[in-house]
């Protein structure tokens, strides 16, 4: 079965007084990996469960290829899903788990076991076929769950925070592996996570959600460098929030006049949003405009946390070799390296 594209049109879902999804629209192209990213309760999991058919929708429709599947029950949808954890059937062996979807599709025993072994090979567990799930580590269990979700060549692959229960190192390895497999099989994939690093590192596009609404969906680069809303700007990456005055579309930060881009009020008190790498720190010969609080070494780069004389905490990210003598208490000058700045209301 070849992969298809997936479209959600005006999907809404309410739980009592809570609106989990509000006129939600999403398109995932063939073979694309789209992550849905957002804080807990933003509706990302609901969206995924609606795609899988595990949750019903109040209005709107879900389309795979040309076909409206909104009313098709979950077990007839042909989508593979990987859950957070503990979703493997404990009474079955690893290979039986992986072959489960094919068994449900009445594939002969010989063929389905062959396919199961192929997939176990792909996820790097060829020798674990006969084991039971309680004999596997958390990372191995999720690999098996991935193999199981892919074994019956689903049209869509759904990943519901599959890495959140794992240790940091395993998490990084497994996410690379998921991406590698996804590309080689060309499976259209939706990946739900609350970890932005995870979403940004392996996705073609990332959709940032808040309160049941898709705030912005774009490539990781665009999301980071040109966030459409203040929510996205704050949620993705580290962002400095510096209070300033807006006059005639201009803002003055650390003595430099910047053009305010996008939304926000036309004049008055605002907050300017600046990435740490757009702020550089120079040793001051006199009072400077800030004082170093700490420096945290991160390898090639270092984060310098400063406090302006007005009291605002500002983080700067610089190449490490420039930052050796920024000891706590050093008086410094902060400078902005961009000409445009995004602003938001206080």
């Amino acid at each position: 079965m070849t992969s298809k594209d997936l479209t959600l049109t005006n999907v809404s879902r309410r739980f009592g007084t809570v609106t989990a999804l509000d006129n939600f629209n999403l398109h995932v192209g063939v073979g694309e990996l789209v992550a849905l990213l957002g804080p807990s309760g933003c509706g990302k999991t609901t969206a995924l469960r609606i795609i899988a058919g595990l949750e019903s929708l109040d209005s709107g429709k879900v389309t795979v290829g040309e076909k409206d599947i909104s009313r098709i029950p979950a077990h007839k949808r042909n989508m593979g899903m990987v859950f957070q954890a503990y979703s493997l059937f404990p009474n079955l062996t690893v290979e039986e788990n992986v072959a489960f979807g094919l068994q449900m599709r009445k594939v002969s025993k010989h063929l389905r076991l062959k396919k199961a072994h192929e997939l176990l090979e792909l996820v790097g567990l060829p020798t674990h076929a006969k084991r039971f799930t309680h004999q596997l580590s958390g990372g191995q269990q999720q690999r098996v769950a991935l193999a199981r979700a892919l074994a019956f060549s689903p049209e869509i692959l759904l990943l519901d925070e599959p890495l959140s229960a794992l240790d940091a190192q395993v998490r990084v390895n497994l996410r690379e592996e998921i991406r590698r497999l996804q590309i080689s099989l060309g499976t259209t994939t939706v990946f739900v996570t609350h970890d932005q690093e995870e979403a940004m590192s392996i996705s073609d596009r990332v959709g940032v959600m808040s309160h049941g609404v898709l705030e912005q969906i774009d490539t990781p680069d665009v999301l980071y460098n040109a966030p459409a809303t203040a929510f996205v700007a704050n949620f993705v990456g580290v962002m400095n929030r510096i209070p300033a005055d807006l006059a005639n579309g201009k803002v003055s930060i650390f003595g430099k006049s910047l053009t305010a881009s996008k939304k926000g009020s036309e004049s008055g008190k605002i907050v300017a949003l600046l990435r740490p790498e757009t702020i550089s720190v120079k040793k001051s010969s006199s009072q400077g405009n800030a004082r170093v609080l700490t420096r945290s070494f991160q390898g090639a780069s270092s984060a310098i946390i400063c406090q302006t004389h007005e009291g605002t905490i500002v983080q700067s990210l610089m190449a490490s070799f420039d930052t050796g003598d920024f000891h706590p208490g050093t008086l410094v000058d902060l400078e902005v390296s961009t000409n445009e700045v995004m602003v938001t209301n206080v």
């Binding site: 595990l54 077990h75 979703s87 059937f89 009474n91």
Partner: peptide, 27 residues
């Protein structure tokens, strides 16, 4: 009995009856 098992079974194409005979009852 975890909710994930019912959902995973559904997702893999199992009907309610399939789930009970392959997973629920054996467990």
């Amino acid at each position: 009995l975890r909710r994930e098992w019912v959902e995973a079974a559904k997702n893999l194409g199992a009907s309610q009856i399939n789930y009970w005979f392959r997973v629920g009852f054996p467990l």
